[in-house]
Design a protein around this nucleic acid. Structure first.
Lengths: 165, 165, 165, 165
DNA sequence: TTTT
DNA sequence: TTTT
């Protein structure tokens, strides 16, 4: 149920291989940056201008797993999600990061099965990926308070600090 | 022309009276915060939960003028725009703010003509608002380099620092 | 799962009180017509022009019940659904009707709680509405083949034949 | 200006080479059918189901010309337009056809530069296409009343009767 | 950091 | 058939 509408629709290219993590409850989370670009002719100079916008997209659940397997740097994606701004702190000062959350109620479509590397649509090999913890949660994780909601995830610490927004 | 799609659709309520400014070229800019909310039942506790998301929306041009006249705190709006993140600096450290830009190609609909105050849809009195500078730009402003594009607007300094994201 | 995207977003006013029916499996179906309008200035004559577009919207499930209770002639709605064209026959000739289907994955928002009649947001009295058959299906209906999917619903025979498209 | 919102977003594949025509005023019109498909698992039978939906899309102006040059059978498109139902008559009985109109305010993105035929993105040879009549309208066409608006176009007679809706 |  |  919702009062209001909060909808984002993007088509763009992925800036790097997705980072996939697993929450203590076994739910997958995948982070991706997505570039959309606009070009227009400057009225003053007549020059063709271009501006690229980078978006932080966070997938949860089943879509996160699909992203981890099939999406790579350069992939073209359609995504539908919602805007969410989370607060974090650095050196005692509050910062805010706005992301597009894609979970249930959202959508993702891989528009291009041929990203760099040329392995076609074969799933990415998964040796280096930690096993999903759906059916087998580790004991020490169950001692932590359960994660009731994806939105309440305390931190996104796997994010590179160098991508600042 | 665009490579990619960058679209945001929101329906929500305005958090405060709009701030309207005029760029040196006479174009109006209106800033508004918009609240959307989601509610859901927590699976663990069975409790009804609610989360409100605040969005920064920036209108340009004709829509900004309409916003300045008809939108007030509490107004319910439909907006369609695009995501844009701009960089700014505070105490020597870079910060990023993500906004929804609504200009040509975007859309705005006032869904509720009866916000708090009860004056109906009568335009807001405009004495305290600086005159639009479309046909009559002030000389000292023309000495500055022209602002060719809304996106290149150097700063949004009229923003209240207390709205941190 | 979907290959492709099929999304319709409308904001408009409802042309008449909704017609709510119940499928044999107890699922509610609500039909509504929704008007959206565009106005523009004719370049030839300089006259203000207006065109109203009428849309057939079909709600299923929980949303259909909400529509039956709260939506009335004149209500302003936001809906998000998908396009679907169904075939029917009249006098031996095939006809096609395109509707916007709003079910799971879709959305509905009542944007105006004050339609004509002035009873506020109180649910419509329900004496004249047949009881939902969720838990108590009637025997003769169970003898029919089950309706596996809303999309496969054989007919919309409660529709007024006079609304031709 | 609009009271209400009427927006359609589709991603799908084109069913045949576009038909491009020119209105008496020189404006291009391109007709395309676009397929979107949904698949789901039937709850009764557990079988994977698929349903393809065909949409009639009509492009006007610059986008129609781009469609005529670059879009072919099998092309994958993103389109953003609005719903419009027009009335026509056959054997004295009124029929209605719903289309997605993509003109100014709409958008089109070619998501796949490699449709069947393998000529890459080279524009389609244009010998068989009637010259645009922008600057040079033919006299007999000017005797007809001018077409002030794309929406008022009297007929779409170039459509194949075999595509019935 | 992507893509055309 | 709606609404502003």
């Amino acid at each position: 149920m919702a009062r209001g509408v909060n909808k984002v629709i993007l088509i763009g290219n992925v800036g790097g291989d997705p980072e996939v993590r697993y929450l203590p409850n076994g739910n997958a989370v995948a982070n991706v940056t997505l570039a959309t670009s606009d070009s227009w002719k400057d009225k003053q100079t007549g020059q063709q201008q271009e501006r690229t916008e980078w978006h932080r997209v966070v997938f949860f659940g089943r879509l996160a797993e699909i992203v981890g397997e099939y999406v790579r740097k350069g992939s073209k994606l359609y995504i539908e999600g919602r805007l969410q701004t989370r607060e974090w702190e650095k050196d005692g000062v509050k910062r805010y990061t706005t992301e597009i959350v894609v979970d249930i109620g959202g959508q993702m479509q891989l528009l291009d099965g041929r990203p760099q590397g040329g392995e076609g649509m074969a799933p990415r090999p998964q040796q280096s990926r930690p096993a999903p913890q759906r059916q087998a949660q580790q004991p020490q994780q169950q001692q932590q308070p359960a994660q009731p909601q994806a939105q309440q995830m305390p931190d996104y610490d796997s994010f590179d600090d160098d991508i600042p927004f």
